[in-house]
Write a protein that binds this DNA or RNA. Structure first.
Lengths: 226, 226
DNA sequence: ACAAAAGTGTTGCGGCTACACCCATGA
DNA sequence: TCATGGGTGTAGCCGCAACACTTTTGT
């Protein structure tokens, strides 16, 4: 029964890069570290994996505790194992990224933790190897966005094609031709046009669309050349 | 100093899906499990992460011990954390896949461990969640192959374009048009034609090519539509 | 009238596919 | 001479990028 007992055990944590979209910018939710070492630096939200808990369950627990979010979209980035990555003790960390719709997370819970949304174009210094995690997370998010309509996870339920395009411009940090983007997205046949219009961003008014759940799940044709 | 001490520690292992190419087939190196439970099933090569050792170092150590290979190409798949995935004890496993050139591994070392190369089209039953790991590993390998010439890691130093095409057909489990494949690969401008020819597979003789190390490293244009 | 977003149409280029077609040579 | 792989060329299709153009309406 003790086949493995001559091997060492390790602390195993999860760290979550939480992406959100506000003010036409892709943002990351970070928490300030209040004690030395690395006081004043910022940190991804993390926590230790408990007994009888998978890493995904741990990530969901951490996300719920800090943002109030449930049923959030979650994807594993990779696992970071440098023995000295945490100066306090050896901790193996499984990285996740999460996508948070701005209309669903709990502002109060977030504030209580002193968290702050940072635009990904101007991130502060982060502890340990968290900057590396964020870089890998962003690449993964771009890959996902290149093959599926990510509006469902980051925009409100109803959104205009311009809002979706601005989101993609924030994710890929480049501009897309409005006409071509519209045609490409609609050709995928996964959005459903609603009968209501948004007049807040143009005089003419733009139709709202929403994702058809059944179709938007699957992997689509390539949307963006990576 | 004991900030983390109220959290549990876990066994952490690495498991390696070792791919090789022989007889025009993509193969996987598996080891028979000689004891209950799961006797008679086959297993990926694995081992536990030691103190002061990163997961990549652990994977390299395991590969060297079982195949004699050094400087092998290695990539992380993902981390498997279901609490009950190993019935013996809770073990968190970081999956890797490795690419082994058939002319470089040590046949004797492999035989000593009772290992066997299985074509990926007819894999045996495997222990735990190893079949799942292999599935994910193959997808990752296809993604890599779609954007870089993977011949460098799986073929001998010198190879013909037909050999490279057969390798791609084995990886993607579909056929490629010989003329188009040749033109696509050569257009990437990362292979160097040698002055020698291979006469063993055709009467006319086909030029050998080799990878130009400097160029084949970077990510190329898409080779195969995934 | 003008600006700004919504939405549609058009054109040209480049890449991919599906072939046809030569060459060389061993059986 | 025939089959087989080596190697080149080409015509058609499709997707994408660039950009023109029309519509709508608030200022």
């Amino acid at each position: 029964m003790k086949l493995y007992s001559n091997h060492p055990k390790h602390f195993v944590a999860v760290d979550c890069a939480i992406f959100g979209y506000r003010n036409e910018e892709l943002c990351l939710l970070l928490y300030p570290r209040g004690f030395e070492p690395s006081q004043g630096k910022w940190s991804l939200m993390g926590g230790f994996i408990q007994k009888n808990e998978s890493s995904e369950e741990a990530a969901k627990r951490v996300l719920n505790e800090t943002t109030g979010l449930k049923n959030i979209y979650l994807e594993q980035i990779e696992t970071f194992t440098q023995p000295n990555r945490d100066p306090e003790a050896r901790v193996i960390s499984i990285g996740y990224y999460a996508l948070s719709r701005m209309d669903e997370y709990d502002e109060k819970t977030v504030r209580e933790h002193g968290a702050h949304w940072w635009p990904i174009t101007e991130l502060p210094q982060m502890i340990f190897d968290h900057a590396n995690m964020v870089e890998k997370a962003l690449i993964k998010l771009q890959q996902k966005s290149g093959y599926s309509i990510v509006g469902k996870e980051l925009l409100p339920e109803k959104f205009t094609l311009m809002q979706l395009r601005k989101l993609y411009e924030a994710i890929f940090q480049r501009e897309f031709d409005p006409g071509n983007f519209r045609k490409k997205i609609l050709s995928l046949d996964t959005l459903q046009r609603l009968n209501t219009k948004n007049y807040s961003e143009s005089k003419k008014g733009a139709f709202y669309y929403k994702c058809q759940n059944s179709k938007s799940e699957k992997i689509l044709d390539r949307i963006v050349k990576i």
